[in-house]
Nucleic acid binder design. Structure first.
Length: 439
RNA sequence: GGAGAAAUGACCGAGUGGUUGAAGGUGCACGCCUGGAAAGCGUGUGUACGGCUCAAACCGUACCGCGGGUUCGAAUCCCGCUUUCUCCGCCA
């Protein structure tokens, strides 16, 4: 949510900045609503003041045993008008709030202009894609030929965009998540958290998924779908939601900052509107695991924190020796809540392309304002925090990257060195039946 | 799922219709005192929104879990909800 004060005083500039990300600010509607708000609020408060003054006099008169009917008559007519004014003001405030909740964050000055992902800017590259002297397979071919990846079974159980892994592959998937958690907690100073996978609407509003992106979420109601108009819970689309909302309606003491949390969770996304995209394989699933990093920081420190955050995510790929590049997203490609976003894209030999494996964003005070997430500043006054989040990393996509980058001519897949301790020492996924049962 | 109890400021805690933003205490800040500290004494100590302002001061409004209602007036009365605790049932 943007600062209403800023909208009142600097509207044209705000509208111009939002236009860069393809958002058309309803200037006229806003101004009209704001003018009405001012008028009605002034009137309402005036009436309230009259009522309060009269009531006070009634109290005094009664205490002195005086006659009260004269004042009562004076104030009698106020009731209806006041009630009407209050209702009107309430309506306007709701309307204003609804408008505010639909407006995306302002892009930071350092974000490149552009309409879509073709305008993103590469800022660095790490590692060289390996050269293969055989025809590479993609992760689907590899996983299915190993007998460890079964999309048919997943489709039978749940439908499209679900996956089922077995044996060494399922173990590798778990190993990746463990490895990421261990690295972030032991080397990068994050506190591990275990969080709910079902969250309420307030939480989703806080981080910006609601009200605008309801169709991207899965809703859950106790007692089944028939029970509900408004669903009780939503499955988290990312651990960013539960983790960041830990500070909702809180005032964090200055010396507690920065807060750095990591969680490994499944994520659930409806992928509405992505029909036909990435239909093959593990890249785009309704359910996937992710290790998520969240920073809750002092506003002065948030851009430094963003650089650290990206570095922490990159560190995972470096340890796995997977080539990647870091992109600054342009204004037109950023998510709703972000002021600045870096995407990390990993090299996938099966697609002969770099594909997103992490997205790290500074949301500045955008989420904090929605959440009323504050800290007590140097003057002892509550002030809005800045929130950041980033994948560190998407586990499923990392698994894809390992399979494709570490494949051998015989269809086997080497286990990256850092993962072997998590794999009971196994150094290779082989095309043998035993493979699965050895573990 | 059933029965009961509770929810007040940073914290504890008083307050069953009338100058209550809210007694008292703790904590915190500042001052006095002291060689220094403690104790003691004094003063102060919420947030949000709006008006007027360059700004501050000032003024107004709202806020005692949340949402409604009754009333000239609600922390206080009524209704609904949420959360926490206790007991019973069920359960990984």
């Amino acid at each position: 949510m943007l600062d209403i004060q800023q909208l009142r005083t600097d509207l044209d500039n705000v509208a111009r900045q939002l236009a860069k990300r393809g958002f058309v600010f309803p200037i006229d509607a806003f101004n009209a609503l704001e003018a009405e708000r001012k008028k009605i609020q002034t009137r309402t408060e005036e009436l309230q003041a009259q009522r309060n003054a009269a009531s006070k006099r009634i109290g005094q008169a009664k205490a002195e045993g005086g006659d009260v009917t004269a004042i009562m008559n004076q104030v009698a007519h106020l009731g209806d008008e006041l009630k009407q004014a209050e209702a009107h003001l309430d309506r306007i405030k709701r309307e204003m709030q609804a408008m505010l909740l639909e407006i995306p964050n302002l892009p930071h000055a350092s974000v490149p202009d552009g309409k879509d992902e073709t305008c993103n800017v590469q800022i660095r590259r790490w590692g060289e894609p390996r050269r293969f002297d055989f025809t590479v397979k993609d992760h689907v071919g590899l996983g299915e030929e190993l007998g460890l990846l079964d999309f048919e079974a997943a489709a039978k159980l749940s439908g499209a965009r679900f996956s089922l892994m077995k044996g060494g592959l399922a173990r590798l998937h778990r190993a990746l998540a463990q490895f990421m958690l261990d690295t972030h907690t032991q080397e990068h100073g994050y506190q591990e958290t275990y969080v709910p996978y079902l969250v309420g609407r307030d939480s989703l509003r806080g981080t910006g998924q609601l009200p605008k992106f309801e169709q991207d979420l899965f809703a859950v109601s106790a007692g089944g779908a028939d029970a509900a108009g408004i669903p009780e819970y939503h499955l988290i689309p990312t651990a960013e939601v539960p983790i960041t909302n830990m500070v909702r309606d809180e005032i964090i003491p200055l010396q507690a900052l920065p807060l750095k949390y990591v969680a490994h969770t499944p994520c659930f996304r409806s992928e509405a509107g992505s029909y036909g995209r990435d239909t093959r394989g593990l890249i785009r699933q309704h359910q996937f695991d992710k290790v998520e990093l969240v920073h809750i920081v002092h506003p002065d420190d948030s851009y430094e924190a963003l650089e650290q955050l990206v570095g922490h995510a990159e560190r995972i790929l470096q340890k796995l020796e997977l080539p990647y590049r870091v992109m600054t997203l342009c204004t037109g490609d950023m998510g709703f809540s972000a002021a600045k976003t870096y995407d990390i894209e990993v090299w996938l030999p099966g697609q002969n392309a770099y594909r997103e494996i992490s997205s790290c964003s500074n949301c500045e005070a955008f989420q904090a304002r929605r959440m009323q997430a504050r800290f007590r500043n140097e003057q002892g006054k509550p002030a809005l925090l800045h929130t950041l989040n980033g994948s560190g990393l998407a586990v499923g996509r990392t698994l894809v990257a390992v399979l494709e980058n570490y494949q051998n001519a015989d269809g086997g897949v080497a286990i990256p060195g850092v993962l072997r301790p998590y794999m009971n020492g196994l150094d290779q996924l082989r095309k043998s039946e035993q493979n699965a049962s050895e573990l």
